[in-house]
Design a protein around this nucleic acid. Structure first.
Length: 433
RNA sequence: GGGGAGAUAGCCAAGUGGCCAACGGCAACAGACUGUAAAUCUGUCCUCUUCGGAGUUCGAAGGUUCGAAUCCUUCUCUCCCCA
């Protein structure tokens, strides 16, 4: 029961109550208290889309901006060519330059949507470290930068230590120096004095602050966020079908919405603090609401709404919500058949679809064949059969338990669609054409 | 270089001539219960299957045997101890 919002929280206070601070370099909060600061976070272009895991860093930048500081997102056009050994147990494959460019472009678009780039004193900025590395000659680099850091210092880093047994190429070993130089460059030429990132970046960040100190006697700061894990200890950001991406062609808005909606109660409390900018009061009142009526899942719904809307926009959220209502709501079975065709197609946009000739369906297709050979719902007939017997398959929301069932055109929605449900949460649409 | 231990399914791990497609556990998937939660209970979990079965596995290759994950030979790799 704190008083009403008196004065706005500082950046550190904001992150602290949200549980987003892992490590912070001494002097950082004094720096931030002294006035607007420029700070940056690097994004590794290993994919053409950011994943929900990267969203943590985006949120950090967003809070940073909202607290009056200036956020800078660094695209790793150069570092991406080297490969960060942090958290990797084996040498990585290098990305082709072409791939790298495509990845940068994809991520750039997403970042531009998530941060506020409207011109102003603390508008977000985007930089690419390739810009200052492309002209940097190897000999110059090892003379001007390499000279300031000892191999002993670099070897002491966790990311390197962990690879000493199994091996690490010179390329990956050098990574921290390349990233460290970024920090130096940004500090020197762009007045950036703070680098943030995930806790696995601590080593790389401190190489940067060290470089700044040794090359120019300057001072720079660091802040890292904890690694996000689910309450059951498993990795955050993955589902059965893989990574959850921000790109709607890789993870449909519907699947994205479902990802957040499916968070456990415990996780929802953590996630709503990290992935939304809701105030402490709002979060606590949602928690109270949730505790009073857990089955309403106010936390999950609000979390999913907030994040989906921010990433995919209002229209996509509405569609995802509608689809979820239809698929999981308690609407009577015949509600399904009343949905008009455009709505149906919009709802199932993010659901795998298969087409079978209508004429085949007229003569009837055995269920197992339909789900395995005609539509890749199952990889083998045996498997299809087993799950049907186990009661895990529904068509048009009605359970089918007879593996010998023959599907005909009877019951086609709108005369041409079949909604197949495998388990509780996996939907497929079969179109009779 | 000398000595020892080991390699079994996605992971951990039992099995040391037939009863072994291989005990357990974890993970995963499904069902029940619920709230699209957690916990719990149940089922599935090498591949295919017309659910009757069929096929291919126990580091690799050969061999002994009616029969091998299990015995023998060679090879590959991992770990530990001594130098």
């Amino acid at each position: 029961m704190s008083g009403q919002s008196t004065k706005p929280l500082s950046f550190i206070e904001e992150l602290t109550w949200r549980g987003m601070v892992q490590d912070i370099m001494p002097g950082t909060s004094e720096l931030l208290a002294s006035g607007p600061v420029r700070g940056y976070i690097g994004f590794d272009p290993t994919s053409d889309s950011l994943g929900v895991g990267n969203l943590v860093q985006v949120m950090i930048l967003l809070h940073f901006q909202r607290c009056g500081h200036q956020p800078v997102a660094l695209m790793g056009g150069a570092t991406g060519m080297v490969g960060d050994p942090s958290g990797k147990s084996a040498e990585r494959n290098l990305l082709s330059e072409e791939q790298l460019r495509a990845n940068l472009e994809g991520q750039r678009k997403q970042l531009e949507k998530l941060l506020d780039f409207t011109p102003g004193p603390n508008q977000a900025l985007l930089v690419n470290n390739y810009d200052w590395f492309k002209e940097f000659r190897f000999l110059d680099f090892i003379r001007d930068v390499g000279k300031h850091i000892t191999v002993n210092y670099m070897m002491a880093k966790d990311s390197v230590q962990k690879r000493l047994e199994t091996g690490i190429s010179f390329t990956e070993f050098s990574y921290q120096l390349v990233q460290g130089y970024d920090f130096y460059h940004l500090w020197k030429h762009h007045g950036i004095s703070l680098q943030m990132g995930g806790s696995d970046q601590w080593g790389n960040i401190t190489t940067g602050t060290e470089l700044i100190r040794r090359m120019e006697g300057g001072e720079a700061f660091a802040l890292t966020t904890p690694l996000i894990k689910k309450a059951d200890g498993t990795k955050f950001g993955k589902t059965e079908s893989g990574n959850v991406w921000l790109d709607s062609s890789k993870t449909s808005p519907y699947a994205f919405y479902q990802f957040w909606l499916n968070a456990s109660d415990e996780d929802a409390k953590t996630f709503i603090r990290i992935f939304t900018i809701k105030s402490r009061e709002e979060v606590e009142s949602l928690e109270a609401e949730h505790a009073a009526a857990p089955h309403q899942r106010a936390l999950q719904k609000e979390l999913a709404r907030d994040v989906t809307e921010r990433v995919h926009g209002r229209a996509e959220y509405d569609k995802a919500l509608e689809a979820s209502d239809i698929l999981f709501g308690n609407a009577p079975v015949d509600a399904l058949s009343r949905i008009d065709e455009p709505t149906l197609l919009a709802v199932f946009e993010g659901v795998p679809q298969f087409t079978v000739p209508k004429s085949d369906l007229e003569s009837g297709i055995p269920l197992v064949e339909l789900l395995c050979d005609r539509a890749s719902v199952f990889p083998s007939r045996g498997e299809a059969r087993k799950l049907v017997l186990a009661g895990g398959v529904s068509i048009n929301k009605q359970k089918v338990v007879d593996p010998a069932f023959v599907q005909t055109t009877d019951g086609l929605l709108q005369g041409r669609y079949l909604l197949v449900q495998k388990g509780k949460k996996n939907y497929y649409l079969i179109i009779a054409d």
